[in-house]
Design a protein around this nucleic acid. Structure first.
Lengths: 106, 106
DNA sequence: GATCTAATTCGACAATTATCTAATTAGATA
DNA sequence: TATCTAATTAGATAATTGTCGAATTAGATC
């Protein structure tokens, strides 16, 4: 992950968090199957305009968190697990930071 | 992690990424020792104003990524490893997303 | 108490971002 | 070809965010 802030920025919006959770577990939509979802599903899920969904999806794709594939009229989206692994790997050293209990000397 | 986007928002700025990396490995500063750093160290590291550093530190502390402790005139900052672990745990299910190779049927 | 220093708060401003509507592009089908 | 649909692009606007200088607060020392 060359620019961690870009990936985390993509994760920093509640709408995009909802989109990712939906991509992971799409439920009760027309064409969703096996983690495969089109933009129109997300529109109806979130009640946002086409343009807004397109904007968020572009951010997620640019950050590498989602892969997009045009299929006929539809854009098919799926999670890219590797990008999430990379983000975890970036965080790992911080999760191992030693607990400094000592008060600082005067 | 109740609101993932808040933690990721704190991670979504290059200045704050630098601050976190510095907190993890403070180098060549006056009072830095054993992962213990004051705001003035960060000011001189990044060449930002007191007010701007204070703003960023508040965000990091509010997100739980950094703990702050006032000691005499100085504010002492250290990483909170647990918050990073929590973020990793949140990402983990996405990192296990199955690779869907199949093309979508027409 | 006066003064010095570290940090926060306040108020302003520029840049970025999320959202919308309208227009456009791309693909499928009548 | 005309038309319908899914998605993107363009342009506008409101909200958020990053930054600064100035003023304020809190703690230490003269």
């Amino acid at each position: 992950m060359s620019e961690p802030d870009r990936v985390f920025k993509a994760l920093s919006d509640p709408v995009r968090i909802k989109i990712l959770q939906f991509l992971r577990k799409p439920e009760g939509v027309c064409c969703a199957q096996a983690g495969v979802v089109c933009a129109c599903d997300i529109e109806s899920l979130l009640g946002l305009s086409q343009a807004t969904v397109s904007h968020h999806m572009k951010l997620l794709v640019d950050a590498g968190l989602v892969r997009a594939q045009k299929h006929s009229r539809w854009m098919i989206y799926q999670l890219d697990a590797e990008a999430f692994s990379d983000a975890m790997a970036w965080l790992a050293p911080f999760a191992r930071a030693p607990k400094v209990k000592q008060k600082v000397p005067a």
